[in-house]
Design a protein around this nucleic acid. Structure first.
Length: 263
DNA sequence: AGTACCACCTGACGGC
DNA sequence: TGCCGTCAGGTGGTAC
């Protein structure tokens, strides 16, 4: 599932399974998910070629073909990749099915069809065209401060704004704010410098440990909020009750005791 | 110009 | 059991 850590895990999965094999057939089960291209065009670019390497920017995965094109995957809220040989292992909501010459298949499954499948010639140009910010794993502290300083929005909205910083969504913004002890409804511009630096460190630490844990909440450190949201709703740091609030249309989970006020 | 909100799509869950 | 409303880890377009 598809914030930065989930997409990074998908990238590692793709790299471990699907590179350097001839693509013999591409089936498009949901043509409406193709962005700015036809089924025919996608098949022409992929079939007979092979994936050579991949890159991730924010929540997007760019898969480099030998012919120089990139297959671009975005996972929406429900997308994932799966590699299998036995067709009984076919996932339930396949939108793209790629058959390799070794008899294995790579499926892109996306139940809610909120993801996207695209082609690109150049990653930097794609990022520029979509106006995506610097990747959250790559950004340095000064750019982070700049990205958050010029907005009237809440800090949670600003962290989730892909044009400021790419890769953070609803779940991980909550975790980052929780680890930094910052209230989600606090105005981004009202944070003092030490809070912003704390957020920066929390962002790096949360994202890298989530990737190490293969984005599986069951493996997360004991004091992480994610495994407790919607489950027992108990704060893993102070034992108090987790609260929720709507922040620009999304549900924020936070601990009012550990994360102070939004004033 | 910048921010908030709805639509897009499908399925799961709880209440009646 | 069945129907309905609500909600879900995202984002583009549109309305303020």
């Amino acid at each position: 599932m598809p914030e930065l850590p989930d997409v990074e895990v998908s990238k590692q999965y793709l790299d471990a399974t699907s590179l350097h094999q001839r693509i013999v057939e591409v089936e498009v089960l949901a043509p409406e998910m193709l962005k700015d291209m036809s089924v025919k065009e996608l098949k022409q670019v992929l079939e007979g070629d092979a994936f050579e390497s991949s890159r991730r920017h924010g929540k997007y995965l760019f898969i480099n073909l030998r012919n120089g094109h990139f297959l671009v995957l975005h996972f929406g809220m429900t997308g994932f990749l799966t590699y299998f040989k036995n067709m009984e292992k076919e996932p339930p909501h396949e939108r793209l099915l790629i058959a390799f010459s070794n008899g294995y298949h790579l499926a892109y499954d996306c139940q809610r069809k909120l993801g996207q499948v695209a082609l690109a010639e150049d990653v930097a140009a794609f990022v520029e065209e979509r106006k995506l910010g610097t990747d959250a794993m790559e950004i340095d502290v000064d750019s982070f401060k700049r990205a958050l300083s010029v907005t009237r929005a809440s800090i949670k909205s600003a962290l989730m704004d892909q044009k400021r910083i790419a890769g953070i969504g609803n779940i991980y913004s909550d975790e980052i704010l929780f680890q930094a002890g910052v209230h989600p409804q606090k105005k981004a511009s009202q944070l003092d410098e030490s809070s912003v630096e704390k957020l920066f460190r929390a962002m790096k630490e949360v994202l890298s440990s989530a990737v190490e844990c293969r984005a599986d909440p069951e493996r997360f450190p004991k004091d992480y909020l994610i495994p407790h949201r919607r489950v027992d709703k108990i704060c893993p740091k102070c034992g108090g009750d987790i609260e929720t609030a709507k922040v620009s249309g999304r549900t924020a989970y936070f601990c009012p005791n550990c994360q102070g006020s939004h004033q």
